[in-house]
Design a binder for these strands. Structure first.
Length: 1025
RNA sequence: GGGCAGUUAGCUCAGUUUGGUUAGAGCAUCUGGUUUACACCCAGAAGGUCACAGGUUCGAGUCCCGUACUGCCCACCA
């Protein structure tokens, strides 16, 4: 191959095709247990099959791939298990919505089987697309092991987990208030409920006290925003100790007034005044009511004419409403809790279609809205509606149907969390599982410490069905006989419904499994997180004792986003301990979120989710990956500003909240339409697509291109390459410098990745490759490459350094590095091994096998610091000359002459580097040394390293030079003053001696620089006259 | 209401763990460049009271207290 045919611009698309194929064909990412290696395992957080991946996923997956690839290169047996999640609610909702949009049918129209069938089709389509996206990103997963959460292996794990929980008595059935969508007749999750303020009312109702005694009120007044629910009231609550409660709130407010800002204190004061007034007016009544409640007294529930008790409960806040609160356990979450505490009956008023049922008496059959009107009218007539206030209230609306949500009491399966939650807390507290960054551990622990039981049923058709069968009117003996000897069957009696629950571990039970009885299977499916909780061990084959479980489990690392720490991470930990007795993973890294230019998170509904494939098409996968790594810091979310680029005229079209969801956009400049990622119709798709552009991707692409060209340069200069052994004595300063810097970078990058500081790793590599390797080393070595006598040394070092850079970068930018590395291998089948252990051991020696070549070892810190400071002298002088040139507008081709006043040690350093100064600054150094004096007219730069006099008498712009000097002097004077002041104060006495000495020295240097500058300025002024 | 972040150059962000020379980068801007690796480039310049107010300290972007604003999470709203 002719190296000169390589294009000047790196072509990511060709590389991606070539190497993705190469990797796959060579099975590089496939992993099997290997006793000779240590395992390193990651399971992917399975993306929902709801839709395609967006940049948030790309971030998650890129970070995992960086870890996996770097561990693989370090010699671990690495396994990254890919897969997707069935995402019950979200996926079913998506498919249902589409079904309705396209065919105007609901799920009830087509039935369970047909709907599930359609969801499977959807899943197949998106799983394929997601896997393709992951591959496009360069993810090095073992694709043979791709899993879906409804796969048979996962289903088996789910059944075993459930069975174990059931057998140990950790599963029970209870009641739970769900968000009922009366329009869709389904429960919806909290996430699918949104709150909206409406103009509502606050109605005050009188409930007559039964047989009031002297001094007691005739009525108890309650206030409500939902009067119709009074039909289901089973108590009225009053605070057990209203006086104490008032005291407590008063104390709180007083503390607040004392300890906060003026504005807040004012508000608190107003609240306190109101409270005190209220206390005066209301306390006697509340005390009386509390006593009546303690006495077991009752009130009559109007309209229903039912006696209901007065109860004492802390839920009744003396400072709110009337101080008394009506309790409707079946239709309000808080009242439900009160009902449980107080052992109250729970009267369900609602039918699934949103009408009131027989429990509502004469209001049965009416929808909620009409019940309210009628109830209010009837109460009014009875004189029991005493007051109506206008009030803005928040109501819950279903996101899917945009109709009001009714809280609805439903049967629900739960897992007891007391013990399970504790195991998950212990794991993090004792360090078995470490969460990074550590601040996220708090939320995890707080959430688990509530130990709230986990409701695991969902009223859906898409998911793992709960493996419970009901059997009515059966004797225990019959069950014993039917399931004799069956260890995979467990049953329990439910006294509430007077039926048996039968749980089966593996097979589905037939209707007639118990002779003479009909088994009915539970309709509900399990919460998606139930199967997700098992993901790490289920994908490796649990409950079977597979080789994979034995070798890869527990896994090494989980990388995920912060919003599912509780829902997912915590549950994986507790499920893993419960099922396997082991932690699921050692480390958890919580990554930042990708935000758009408005600081909003990316989501499907907002339409700001960008398909990574579109970025890859424009910039290449490596650019996307590098940009992501570069931006992934510990504390910041990643803000990515993207805009459209018109495919016709190249104009940038700003992405706005308005146009970001459009299938096509009109370019304001050339007035032509282009399509976007949302294009669906054939007509839209036929338009040229406007790529998304963003500064961060451009930076990353430029970096990839820089690397490409630096590599191209190296390869273009490998004629006659034959690595030789070079020992320390043959190395020049720049060689020692680049080698020691390289060793430092290896250390820094390795350490950064160990602690998940991706940005740090990417920055270290970017800066090193661009600023040090390209801008300095490549420029400096050019002369030697063209000199036959020095060529081999130069080539040996160059190849060794480039090879190491490529390998360091490979986890982040796998395609371009593979592309270059494979080519480099052709030119340089043998590499030099760099050893930089210590000053006298710095050498480069041939190493026979390219594949096995290790990273250079770390070197002595003091040595590398010395080299760095020596090289800095050169850099400073070079910069000074360039600055003088630029200031004086000397044309680049004009060679200049300069002299240099500096100490002997600086001369020694610089003497061998004269040619570099010619090459890099176009400057010939005529003389250097401590005694050198400035020519009569010159451009000068003074630095701590020495004074550079650029002899340009013929070209000099005296005014520019004077202006520069004046500015320089003003700056130095400022520093000198501040340092003198510092040294005159307490600093000299109290600061450590070394620091003081450093300051003194620095002051001396500044003074000397000042003197030189002033002298030069004077000279210039004389010259002008 | 509770919790967690963030606020540094026109823009997007590093730097805060462990206080110590003149606070860094990229983009944008300005000046000059087709030096055969790279114009997706090279050289140079300009640009910052480190949100505000206090405190600790010889010394604060960095530590402590408070305020404001922004974002996220959790809880709740008869």
């Amino acid at each position: 191959m002719d190296i000169n045919e390589l294009p000047k611009q790196y072509d990511p698309a060709a590389s991606q095709r070539r190497w993705a194929k190469f990797w796959e064909e060579n099975h590089f990412f496939e992993s099997d247990p290997n006793p000779n290696k240590k395992p390193y395992t990651i399971v992917i957080p399975p993306p929902n099959v709801t839709g395609a991946l967006h940049l948030g996923h790309a971030l998650n997956d890129t970070l995992q791939d960086i870890m996996i690839r770097s561990r693989r290169m370090q010699g671990f047996e690495t396994l990254w298990v890919p897969g997707v999640d069935h995402a019950g609610i979200a996926t079913q909702a998506t498919v249902e919505k589409r079904l309705f949009e396209r065919e105007k049918k609901t799920r009830h129209d087509i039935g369970r089987e047909a709907l599930v069938q359609r969801i499977w089709e959807w899943k197949d389509q998106y799983q394929e697309r997601i896997i393709a996206q992951l591959k496009a990103l360069g993810c090095s997963c073992d694709w043979r092991r791709t899993r879906f959460t409804l796969d048979p292996v996962c289903a088996k794990a789910v059944r075993h987990f459930f069975f174990k929980l059931f057998s140990e008595g950790l599963i029970y059935r209870g009641k739970r208030l769900v968000n009922w969508d009366t329009h869709l007749q389904t429960a919806v999750s909290d996430d699918e409920v949104f709150h909206t303020p409406i103009d509502g009312h606050f109605w005050y109702l009188h409930y007559p006290v039964i047989d009031p005694k002297p001094g007691e009120p005739e009525f108890v007044t309650v206030a409500t925003t939902r009067p119709e629910t009074m039909l289901g009231d089973t108590a009225v609550a009053v605070h057990p100790e209203p006086a104490k409660e008032f005291d407590r709130i008063e104390a709180e407010l007083r503390a607040k007034i004392a300890g906060s800002s003026e504005k807040e204190a004012e508000e608190a004061q107003a609240a306190l005044d109101a409270l005190l007034k209220r206390r005066e007016e209301l306390l006697p009544l509340l005390v009386t009511l509390a006593e009546m409640a303690a006495d077991g007294r009752q009130v009559t529930l109007p309209l229903m004419n039912r006696p209901i008790p007065l109860v004492r409960d802390v839920w009744a806040k003396p400072e709110l409403g009337t101080g008394c609160v009506k309790i409707t356990p079946a239709h309000d979450p808080n009242d439900y809790e009160v009902g449980k505490r107080q052992n109250l009956p729970m009267i369900n008023l609602l039918e699934r279609d949103g009408r009131y049922n027989a429990n509502a008496g004469k209001y049965a059959g009416l929808p909620v809205k009409q019940v309210r009107e009628k109830v209010l009218a009837d109460l009014e007539e009875l004189g029991l509606l005493v007051k109506t206030e206008d009030r803005t209230i928040e109501i819950s609306m279903s996101d899917r149907s945009k109709t009001p949500i009714e809280p609805f009491l439903n049967d629900q399966w739960f897992i007891k969390m007391e013990h399970l939650a504790q195991t998950a807390m212990d794991a993090v507290e004792d360090g078995s599982v470490t969460i990074h960054p550590s601040r996220y551990a708090k939320g995890y622990l707080d959430w688990l410490s509530e130990k709230r039981d986990w409701p695991i049923g969902r009223q859906l058709w898409w998911g793992h069905r709960i493996p419970i069968w009901y059997c009515d009117a059966v004797e225990e003996q019959e069950l014993k006989e039917a399931f004799a000897g069956r260890e995979d069957i467990s049953y329990r009696f439910d006294s509430e419904k007077n039926q048996w629950w039968i749980c089966s571990q593996t097979e589905d039970l037939k209707e007639d499994a118990v002779p003479g009885h009909k088994l009915i299977r539970e309709e509900d499916v399990l919460d998606t997180w139930f199967s997700s909780a098992l993901w790490p061990h289920s994908v490796l084959g649990w409950p079977d004792a597979t080789d994979a479980m034995g070798y890869y489990y527990p896994t090494s690392l989980l990388i995920t986003s912060r919003d599912i720490i509780t829902l997912w991470v915590a549950r994986m930990v507790l499920a893993s301990y419960f099922n396997t007795g082991k932690r699921p993973f050692k480390d958890v890294f919580i990554h930042p979120k990708i935000l758009d230019k408005y600081g909003e998170g990316m989501s499907k509904t907002k339409g700001n989710g960008i398909d990574p494939v579109f970025v890859i098409e424009k910039f290449g996968a490596d650019s996307l990956r590098f940009a992501i790594a570069y931006l992934t810091t510990e504390s910041q979310d990643v803000r990515l500003s993207l805009d459209f680029e018109c495919p016709y005229c190249g104009a940038t079209v700003e992405q706005t909240k308005k146009n970001r969801t459009l299938p096509k956009i009109l370019c304001p400049k050339c007035r032509k339409e282009f399509s976007t990622q949302w294009a669906e119709t054939d007509e839209d798709k036929a338009l040229a697509r406007g790529p998304l552009v963003g500064e961060r991707f451009e930076v990353a692409r430029n970096f990839c291109n820089k690397l490409w060209n630096a590599s191209r340069f190296v390869m273009m200069n490998l004629e006659g390459y034959q690595p030789i052994k070079i020992d320390a004595s043959q190395l020049l300063l720049e060689d020692r410098w680049i080698l020691s810097r390289l060793a430092e970078v290896i250390q820094a990058v390795t350490a950064s990745l160990e602690s998940f500081r991706f940005s740090e790793a990417a920055r270290a590599l970017y800066d090193f490759a661009w600023d040090e390797f390209c801008s300095f080393y490549l420029e400096m070595i050019k002369g030697r490459l063209f000199d036959q006598a020095q060529k081999q040394t130069a080539q040996t070092i160059l190849v060794a350094v480039l090879d190491t850079i490529l390998r360091l970068l490979h986890p982040i930018t796998p395609f371009v590095t593979e592309e270059v590395w494979q080519r480099l291998k052709e030119f340089a089948p043998t590499r030099g091994l760099i050893s930089v252990k210590a000053a006298d051991a710095v050498c480069v020696a041939p190493w026979p096998t390219v594949e096995e070549i290790p990273f250079p070892e770390l070197l002595d810190k003091a040595y590398s610091e010395k080299i760095a400071s020596q090289f800095a002298v050169f850099q400073e002088i070079l910069r000074s000359i360039r600055e003088a040139r630029a200031r004086q507008n000397v044309p680049p081709k004009t060679e200049i002459h300069a002299t240099l006043r500096c100490e002997e040690r600086v001369c020694e350093l610089l003497d061998p580097m004269r040619s570099a100064l010619v090459k890099m600054a176009g400057a010939v150094i005529d003389d250097m040394g401590p005694e050198v004096t400035a020519p009569p007219l010159c451009a000068t730069v003074v630095s701590p390293q020495g004074e550079v006099y650029v002899d340009i008498a013929g070209l000099i712009d005296i005014d520019a030079e004077i202006a520069k000097k004046e500015k320089e002097i003003a700056k130095i004077v400022g520093f000198v003053k501040s340092k003198e002041a510092k040294l005159a104060g307490g600093f000299a006495e109290k600061a450590p001696a070394a620091v003081v000495e450093k300051e003194r020295q620095s002051l001396e240097d500044l003074k000397a620089q000042l003197a030189s500058n002033e002298e030069m300025l004077a000279k210039l002024r004389r010259a002008r006259q």
